[in-house]
Design a binder for these strands. Structure first.
Length: 491
RNA sequence: GGGCCCGUAGCUCAGCCCGGUAGAGCAGGCGGCUCUUAACCGCAAGAUCAGGGGUUCGAAUCCCCUCGGGCCCGCCA
């Protein structure tokens, strides 16, 4: 129990007073309300000082500010659609009730009001209140009415305060939801089936990452939280579902920074009888679509304008090996031995466990020489086979796989390939991963190999970091800015 | 893990450099005002200065440690 501040004490006294007057400070409902934008619409035809007649309107929301002016008072009431002014007069409400309300009403209180649409003498759309109802008394005060909540830490830890004081924050999270809904609609329209696969697994696989570990009492066994959606979804292709996607939370037990959250939302889609060229067309269509939507959702945000531009096709394309060789000045990368690659990684000051799978060295070099330069949205294509154990070998470039990764402003947004469906090849690649012992590897999934033996149609698949897509579209600088309740150290 | 920056009243900030015992605005209290909109005017109140230790006659201020946050780097896809 936290200690009561003097301010909270005053407000508790008000609650007691309200109860003593026989009123309920936390009633059950307020029926028949319309939203503040509808009230404003009702005020549209009125001149300053004019008031509409019957029927009265009912509005409900949070009190943002009060301006007491003797026997007239004004209060700004905010709901999900905006705000409207309440015009409260002693002669309309009754002297005693007016005095009682003026004594007990505070910013932050949730109230319902009934009255007539009116425009004040100064031209402000208002509700001329004939009765007021307290719907929830606020004991603790809202953030400062003009500056809002500025402290970054408080905004993240106590998102409710950020939301109640910042229309921009509310708009941003509304936009996030609408954009994710748009992703679903786009894939649904393309005949993809949304599915749900397990979050708790005996062994998390499908990516190289440290999993969170938990325990099942019933099974008396350790379980891991998924680190990717890939392998269950491909099993569904084996089962004949042909076009599937999942949009859900994925977990990686690693550090947090401006582009990594330990739990993040991932979208993965798998498409039978199509290859990575088809997937690229699909994803470009989706991005173009999202770019249009974000402009409608956040028309006043300059960062969203920039985001929309960034996500509008056409996009740049670079070949993984060509670009790495060009940027680094290193030739014949694919003919280097693992030892030589390790030395090259050392020269750039990156410390990777010596016995990592050799693909890790190539990734490191790419991260160092190329990624920081990928400002505009860029497709990086045809990676070395060593880096990618779940993709199919390239049909014409030896030593490569059919893969593309997307980068925007220096961070990876997503990753797609023509899927490997040869069960024996898959088994071999898993084993190669196991030979590298330092660092993370793709966990061997024997049942997945067994599934492939039953025949998976040729297919393409993609995984994208949804939070990062949202960041890019709205122009957020940190992943925490697009997560309602980001992970924080407890204090 | 390393570097830099930040933490003062419920909220927004000043004071820190150059040590002298904390100052304002909002919100809240009391009083005034029948058209205000960051309403206004007057009065009074509100602070273990993130926590701990040190230096000093004296620490919000200087030094060290710890906690929390931000940014950069490293690590990690």
């Amino acid at each position: 129990m936290t200690e009561e501040t003097p301010l909270e004490h005053e407000r508790r006294l008000k609650v007691e007073r309200i109860r003593a007057e026989g009123r309920e400070p936390y009633p059950w409902s307020f029926v028949g309300r319309i939203t503040t934008d509808q009230v404003r619409a009702r005020c549209a035809g009125l001149h300053a000082g004019e008031e509409a007649g019957d029927p009265p309107v009912r509005v409900a929301g949070r009190i943002k500010a009060t301006r007491l002016h003797g026997k007239t008072a004004f209060a700004d009431l905010e709901d999900r659609e905006g705000s409207v002014q309440l015009l409260i007069r002693a002669d309309t409400l009754g002297e005693a009730e007016f005095q009682s309300w003026m004594r007990d009403l505070d910013p932050g209180d949730i109230v319902g009001a009934e009255g007539f649409p009116a425009v004040s003498k100064r031209g402000e759309p208002s509700v001329h209140v004939r009765s007021l109802a307290l719907l929830a008394k606020a004991i603790a005060p809202p953030p400062e009415k003009y500056h809002g909540l500025q402290d970054v830490e408080e905004r993240l830890r106590r998102r409710y305060l950020d939301l109640m004081s910042s229309p921009e924050t509310r708009q941003l999270f509304r936009a996030r939801t609408m954009l994710i809904r748009e992703m679903r609609r786009y894939l649904d329209a393309a005949q993809f089936l949304e599915v749900e696969t397990p979050i708790l697994l005996p062994v998390a696989s499908g990516a190289a990452a440290e999993p969170f570990v938990t325990r099942s009492r019933y099974l008396d066994a350790e379980l891991q939280l998924r680190i990717s959606l890939e392998l269950p979804l491909k099993r569904l292709l084996v089962g004949g579902l042909e076009r599937v996607y999942e949009l859900g939370r994925t977990f990686r037990n690693e550090d947090m920074d401006t582009s990594h959250s330990p739990e993040f939302t991932e979208l993965e889609a798998y498409w039978a009888y199509a290859d990575y060229h088809d997937m690229r067309r699909l994803i470009e269509g989706l991005y173009g679509h999202l770019a249009e939507r974000v402009l409608e959702l956040l028309p006043e945000s300059p960062t969203a304008q920039r985001g929309a531009q960034g996500f509008t096709p056409p996009f740049a394309t670079v070949d993984f090996v060509d670009e790495l060789e060009r940027r680094s000045g290193i030739n014949d990368l694919l003919s280097k031995t693992p030892g030589e690659l390790r030395e090259l990684v050392r020269t750039i000051g990156s410390t990777v466990p010596d016995r990592s799978p050799p693909g890790v060295f190539l990734d490191k070099l790419f991260e160092h020489y190329v990624e920081p330069h990928l400002e505009r949205l860029t497709f990086v294509v045809d990676h070395p086979a060593l880096t990618t154990p779940l993709a199919k070998r390239h049909r014409s470039k030896p030593g490569r796989v059919e893969r593309f990764e997307m980068f925007y402003r220096g961070t990876e947004l997503g990753n797609a390939y023509t899927e490997l469906n040869d069960p024996d090849e898959q088994e071999r690649r898993f084993r190669e991963q196991l030979e590298g012992q330092g660092g993370d590897t793709y966990a061997y999934d024997a049942d997945f190999v067994r599934a492939l033996r039953h025949g998976m149609p040729p297919a393409t698949g993609i995984g994208v970091g949804v939070d990062r897509i949202i960041m890019g579209l709205v122009g957020a600088e940190s992943i925490k800015d697009v997560l309602l309740f980001p992970q924080m150290r407890s204090r």
